[in-house]
Write a protein that binds this DNA or RNA. Structure first.
Lengths: 198, 198, 198, 198
DNA sequence: GATGAATGAGTCTTCATTCAT
DNA sequence: AATGAATGAAGACTCATTCAT
C-alpha cells in the first residue's frame, strides 16, 4: 500500500523540481513565485506543500538535484585518460549537450545557483561541497598527468586543479553571458595558450 | 546654477547605487526591497524616485556603474606587457584588492549580475558588451604575445582570448563559492598547466 | 450486529472529542485545525468526517459532552445538605480534582467555551441551558437553607442562587487566570464575608 | 513636523483597536481575520501594518487597552467606603453601563480575553497582572471593613478579597452567558447569602 | 469502511510606487 | 525639493473538506 506512495512521492518531487528549474531559468530564483512553479508543475498550491516545506526547500532541493545530475555527467569524463585541453573540451561539450537535451539551460541555472549561494549560506555550502568534490577528481587527474610527465614534477597538484577548474567554470560563464563560445574552439585556444608556457 | 544641480544629482545617484550594492550583495538583487535600499541610502522613498525611475532602473544602473568601475581597474593591467600567467595573477589580485577595499564583494556582485542577466535581456546585453570589450583588449594582448613568439603563430587569437577570459572569470567564481583561491597560487597552477602544452 | 456498530461509533466519537479537547485546551477552539485534531485522535481525515459533520459539529459536541461530564460531577454535591461556604468548597474542590485527573484543564475549557458562546448562538444556548439547569438545583438548595433558617425567609431564592453561582463561576475564572486560588482558602474567605452580612 | 505624527499615530492606533474589538466581539479573537479588522477600521492592509506589527500585536494591544479602560472605571468605586454587597452592586452596575455606552459588550470581551489567555502566556500574564492589581485594591477595602468590624478580625484579608473577586468575575460570566442577571437583584441575593453566615 | 492525496478559497503579510502636505 | 503615510496588488502559505482508490 505505501509502496506506491514512496515511488509516487519521488515522482512528484521530481516533477516539481523540474517545473521549478524551468521557472528559475526564465525568471531567476528569487523572482520566481510559488504560483509560477505551481502552474508550471500543474498542481494545486497545497499539493506542492505536501512535497516541499516551502520555497526555500524547493530552491535548495532544486540546486541539489541539479548538482547531482551534473556530477553524474562529468565524473566519467574526468576518469578517462585525456590530455588537459581535451578534457576541458569534453567537459564543456557535455555541458552544452546536456543543456540543450534537457530543455533547460544548465549554464543559466549555474548563474542562478551561484547568485543564490551569495545570500544563503546553506546553498553556498552545498555548491561548495560539490565543487570541492569535483576538484578532488581533477587533482587525481593532475597526479596522473604528472606521473606521465605532462605536468611539471614540482607543480602543486592542488594549484593546478584550481586553475583547471577556473577554465571550466569560466567557460560556463561565457556560455551564459556572451553565448559565443564553442567547446572545440575554446579548447584550441586553451591548447595554444598551454604551448605559451615554455 | 544648474551645474550644481547636476553635480548634486550625480552625487545622490552614486549614493543610492552604493547603498543598492550593499543590499544586493547581502540579499541578492531580486530579494532586495526598495525599502532596504531607501533605508541603506538614508533617504526618503520619494527622493529615491526622483533620481531613478524605479527598481529596474536602479538594478540596471548599479550593474552598469559596477562594470565601469571594473573596467577602469583592469584596463591598465591588460595594457602592460605581461606574460599570460602573470597577467592572470595581476588581474585576479586587483579584483581581490578592489573587493575588500570597497567594502562590497565584487565577486558576489558578479554572481548576482550574471544571474540577473539570465532573466533580463537588457542586463545581459550590458554585461555582454562590457565583456566583449574586455576581450578585445585581451585579443590585442594575445596578438602581441604571438608577435613575441609566446603564442603559436597559427593560433586563432580570438580563441586564445576566450580561453584566457575563461580563466579570469572562473577565478571569480571560485573566489565567491569556494573562497579558497589565491591569485599567486592560482597563477602558479596555471603556469604549471601552460607548461603541459608541449 | 448494528449494536456493535453503535457502540463502536460512540467509542470513536468519544475518542475524537477527547482529542479535540486536548487541542482546544492548548490552542484555543478557533485556532485548532482539523489536522491537529485528526493527528491527536490518530485517525484519517475522512474517518473523522464519518463521525462528525465538520469542525463546527465537533466544537458543539465537545462542549456539550464536557458540560454533561461537569453535570455528573456537580449534581450529587448540590444534592447534599451542606452549608453555603462548604458547598462552594466542595464544588470548587471537585472541579480542581476533575481537572487534574482527566489530563485536561476544565477551567481552561470553560474559558474557551464561554468565548465560543459569544460568537455562536447555538453554543451559547447550550451552555446557558446547562447553567440554568444547575441554577435550578441551587435554587432547590437555597429553598432548603431558607427552611432551615440559614437564609432570610424574605429572600428571593432565585437571586440568592445567582449570587451563589457567581461565586462558583468566578472561582473558575481565577483558577484559570491567576492560578493562585485554593478551594479551602476561598471558602474561608467567603465564610468571613458571609459573616459580614449582619 | 513630527508633532502631528505622534498624535496622529495614537489616534490611528486607537481607531484600529476599536475596530478590532468590534470584530473580536462579533467573531471571537482567533476567528477574526485581518481583512475584517481592516475593513472595520476603514483603511488599507498596509496602513494597518504601519501601526501594529501583526495580528498578535493587535490582539495583545486590544486586550491591554481594554484592561486599562476597565481599571479607570473600577478604581474610584473600590476607593469609596461601601459595604460589601453595595460595592459589588456598584461595580457590576458600572460594568453594565460601560458595556452599553461604549457600543461593545465588555463582558463578551472578557470571555474572549480569558480564552486567549489560555493559549498565549503573554496575554495571561497581562490579564493576571491587572486582576492582581485590582485584588490589591480589594484587599485594602477589606482591611478597612475589618477595622470597621464588618469583617471578622481573624479573617485573612487576602482570602476575603479572592472570594469578593469571584463574585464580581462570576457576575460577568452570567452577564455574558445567561444574560438574566441584574446588578441590584444580584446584590440583594448576595446580601441574603451574607446574612447566612451567622 | 478507511485512506491520504488533492483542492480552492482564504489567511496573514509585504511590495513597489504615489501623493497630499 | 522633500517627506512619509497610504495603497492595491500580489506574495507565501494554510485550511476545512472531498474523492478516487
Amino acid at each position: 500500500m505505501p509502496k506506491i506512495s514512496d515511488a509516487h512521492r519521488e515522482m512528484r518531487r521530481a516533477q516539481i523540481l523540474d517545473a521549478a528549474w524551468r521557472c528559475f531559468y526564465r525568471e531567476g530564483v528569487q523572482a520566481t513565485t510559488m504560483e509560477q512553479i505551481i502552474k508550471e508543475a500543474d498542481m494545486s498550491a497545497s499539493a506542492m506543500y505536501r512535497y516541499f516545506g516551502g520555497k526555500d526547500d524547493i530552491i535548495f532541493s532544486a540546486i541539489s538535484s541539479s548538482l547531482t545530475a551534473v556530477g553524474k555527467l562529468l565524473e566519467p569524463i574526468v576518469a578517462r585518460d585525456l590530455a588537459p585541453a581535451v578534457l576541458v573540451e569534453r567537459v564543456t561539450s557535455d555541458i552544452e549537450t546536456f543543456s540543450h537535451r534537457e530543455g533547460y539551460n544548465l549554464a543559466a541555472i549555474a548563474m542562478h545557483g551561484w547568485s543564490e549561494a551569495q545570500r544563503d549560506e546553506k546553498v553556498r555550502e552545498l555548491i561548495r561541497g560539490f565543487y570541492l568534490g569535483f576538484r578532488e577528481q581533477l587533482v587525481a587527474r593532475v597526479v596522473r598527468w604528472q606521473a606521465e610527465g605532462a605536468v611539471a614534477p614540482d607543480a602543486d597538484v592542488a594549484e593546478v586543479a584550481k586553475a583547471l577548474q577556473s577554465i571550466i567554470l569560466g567557460y560556463v560563464v561565457q556560455m551564459s553571458i556572451m553565448r559565443d563560445v564553442d567547446p572545440a574552439a575554446h579548447a584550441r585556444g586553451l591548447a595554444a595558450l598551454l604551448g605559451a608556457g615554455r
